[in-house]
């Protein structure tokens, strides 16, 4: 069962990663733009059990570490996404106020997006990664959160359906 899910989920992750790297990264959007892979991973994480969410976070973080634009050490995103995925699922999974409500999912995704970026900056500072001036970091954090807030409602139905397809969920948004 788990093998089947991974074999279906893996190409989806790769496609999202390719879209992120080949299409979305091409646009120099103001405020830092958005990461489709982050939104995708968090959407799936909030809809999944903690066990699955951890794996989703790990896979997404691993792909993000592979990205050429990542400046931190390999594994930094993997660790952060793993923890984030687990945490978001731990808080949100099973709560109908979150799962049955599109606004709740979007809220979780956006907040998780912001927190994981803050965590990246904080751990990056510990690991010696230069992230720019404080003001620039603030602008980027604000911009990325805003973009996530704009993009999440658009992609949520698609990601939700894909999650239902892979994990055989009975409810889709």
């Amino acid at each position: 069962m788990f093998t089947r899910q991974i074999s279906i989920a893996a190409p989806i992750f790769l496609i999202i990663y390719v879209i992120q790297e080949s299409v979305i990264s091409q646009f120099r959007l103001p405020g830092g733009g958005f990461s489709l892979l982050l939104i995708f991973a968090f959407t799936w994480a909030v809809l999944s059990e903690t066990e699955v969410a951890a794996v989703i976070g790990f896979a997404a973080g691993f792909l993000m570490d592979l990205s050429q634009s990542t400046s931190g050490p390999f594994g930094q995103w993997t660790l952060l996404m793993l923890i984030s995925g687990y945490a978001i699922s731990y808080i949100g999974y099973g709560d109908d106020n979150v799962q049955a409500n599109a606004i709740g999912i979007i809220f979780f995704v956006v907040i998780a997006n912001l927190l994981v970026e803050i965590a990246y900056v904080a751990t990056g500072a510990l690991l010696g990664v230069s992230v720019g001036s404080f003001i620039q970091v603030l602008i980027t954090l604000f911009g990325m959160s805003l973009w996530a807030l704009l993009i999440s409602p658009i992609v949520l139905p698609v990601f939700s359906r894909l999650h239902a397809l892979v994990f055989d969920s009975r409810s889709t948004l």
């Binding site: 903690t50 066990e51 951890a54 993997t78 793993l82």
Partner: peptide, 25 residues
């Protein structure tokens, strides 16, 4: 039981992540 398995998986993946970071550094 499921929660214990999830925590175990989390720990394994965290160790893997830290291992990757260490290797890279």
């Amino acid at each position: 039981r499921n929660g214990g398995r999830a925590r175990l998986l989390l720990v394994i993946l965290m160790v893997t992540s830290l291992f990757l970071i260490t290797l890279d550094l």
